[in-house]
Design a protein around this nucleic acid. Structure first.
Length: 426
RNA sequence: GGAGAGGUGGCAGAGUGGUCGAAUGCGGCGGACUUGAAAUCCGUUGAGCCCCUCGGGGCUCCGGGGGUUCGAAUCCCUCCCUCUCCGCCA
């Protein structure tokens, strides 16, 4: 959510900034609502003041044993007037709130302007894609040959975009998650956290999935609360700070969570239908940081670095791109995507997305810290990043470490997690 | 799933219709005393929002929502959460 004061003070400037993100703000409609709100709020509050004063007067008069009937007569219509004003005010406030909740975040000045992924800016590359002396196979072929990836079984149980992993591939998947968790907790200082995989609408509103992107989520039926499966652990992790006021010396605060993620993938029919690149369910190790506002951009660099370390240790080539204004997510002020090299596709594919949302989410969920300089609670900045998507990382290991005979070498850092296994073979 | 108890300020805990945003204690902050600390004493200490002639003025919040009333932390309805006992269960 954007700062109401910023919007009030210069709606035109905000509208222009939003335009860069492909969002058109109807400034006239907004200003009309805002003017009406102002008028109604003043009116309502002065009626409330009148009510409070007369109620007190009646109380005193009654205690003094005076006749209160004249006082009661004087406020006979006040209740109805007040109720009408309050109803109208809360209606207009709801309309404003609805509008605010649909506005995307403003991009940081360092974010390149652009329409879509073609306008993203490559920041750096790490590692050299391996030269194969045979035609590299993709993870589907490799995994099925290993007997460890069973897309037919996934489809039998749950339909398309589900997979069953078994044996050494399942173990490799587990090893990846373990390795990531250990690295982030032991070396990067994140607090290991397991979270609910079902969250309520307040949490989803807080991180920005709702109200706009309900169709991307799985909702739970047959339950009297409106719970949704998490699309990312970012939702429960970030919402840990909701309604909290943290002390300055607690910051920055970092959480890491290994969790499944559930996405309906509405609107991506026909995209990445082969393999486990785009599944309805996948595992992810997620990092979330809560920082002081003046530290959040340094924190974004650090957090992105933490994700990169995983790929470096796995010796998987990747590149980092800055998303342009048009390609960023709703809540982000700045996002780095990390793309890993997939020989099966001869392409870099997203394996991590690291974002600074500044105060956008914090404002929605009232996540604050006490600034020692002012003594007042102020909004935190929140950041999140995958480090990494475990499923896609498995894909990358299979494809990058494949040998001509279908054997997969196990990256050195994972071997301890695989009981010393150096390679797996069909 | 059954029975009961309860949700109040950072914490503990009073408050069952009127000047209560709310006693008291602890904690925090400032000060006095002290060489320093402890103890003691004094003061202070919630959050959000609106208006403003920048002096200030006002509104809202006692788990959430709704209702009764001139007036609700207090009464009624409803939902959520916590605790205790029983049942069930990983």
């Amino acid at each position: 959510m954007l700062d109401a004061k910023t919007l009030r003070n210069d709606p035109q400037a905000v509208a222009e900034a939003l335009e860069a993100r492909g969002y058109t703000l109807d400034v006239d409609a907004y200003e009309g609502l805002e003017a009406r709100r102002r008028e109604l709020q003043s009116q309502t509050e002065s009626l409330q003041q009148k009510r409070n004063e007369s109620a007190k007067a009646i109380g005193k008069a009654k205690q003094a044993g005076e006749d209160i009937q004249p006082l009661l007569d004087a406020v006979a219509t006040l209740g109805d007037e007040l109720k009408a004003a309050e109803t109208e005010l809360s209606d207009i406030q709801q309309q404003l709130q609805d509008l605010y909740l649909e506005l995307p975040n403003l991009a940081h000045p360092s974010v390149p302007a652009g329409m879509d992924e073609n306008d993203n800016l490559e920041v750096r590359r790490w590692g050299e894609p391996r030269a194969f002396d045979f035609k590299p196979r993709d993870h589907v072929d490799l995994g099925e040959a290993l007997g460890g990836l069973d897309f037919a079984a996934g489809a039998k149980l749950s339909g398309s975009r589900f997979v069953v992993m078994q044996d050494q591939v399942a173990r490799l998947h587990r090893a990846l998650a373990q390795f990531m968790l250990d690295t982030h907790t032991r070396e990067h200082g994140y607090r290991e956290t397991y979270v609910p995989y079902l969250v309520d609408e307040t949490a989803l509103l807080g991180t920005g999935q709702l109200p706009k992107f309900a169709e991307d989520l799985f909702a739970i039926a047959n339950f009297d609360r409106n719970l949704h499966l998490i699309p990312t652990a970012e939702v429960p992790l970030t919402n840990l700070a909701a309604d909290a006021i943290l002390e300055a010396d607690q910051l920055p605060l970092g959480f890491v969570s290994h969790s499944p993620c559930f996405r309906s993938e509405a609107g991506s029919y026909g995209r990445d239908t082969r393999g486990m690149i785009r599944q309805h369910q996948f595992d992810k190790v997620e990092l979330v940081q809560l920082t002081r506002p003046d530290d959040s951009y340094d924190a974004l660099e650090r957090l992105t670095g933490h994700a990169e370390v995983i790929l470096q240790r796995l010796e998987l080539p990747y590149r980092v791109v800055t998303l342009c204004t048009g390609d960023m997510g709703f809540a982000a002020a700045k996002t780095y995507d990390i793309e890993v090299w997939l020989p099966g596709q001869s392409a870099y594919r997203e394996i991590s997305s690291c974002s600074n949302t500044e105060a956008f989410q914090a404002r929605r969920m009232q996540a604050r810290w006490r600034n020692p300089e002012t003594g007042k609670p102020e909004l935190l900045h929140t950041l999140n990043g995958s480090a990494l998507a475990v499923g896609r990382c498995l894909v990358a290991v299979l494809e990058n470490y494949q040998q001509a005979d279908g054997r997969i070498d196990i990256p050195a850092v994972l071997q301890p997690y695989m009981g010393g296994t150096e390679w797996i073979a069909p």
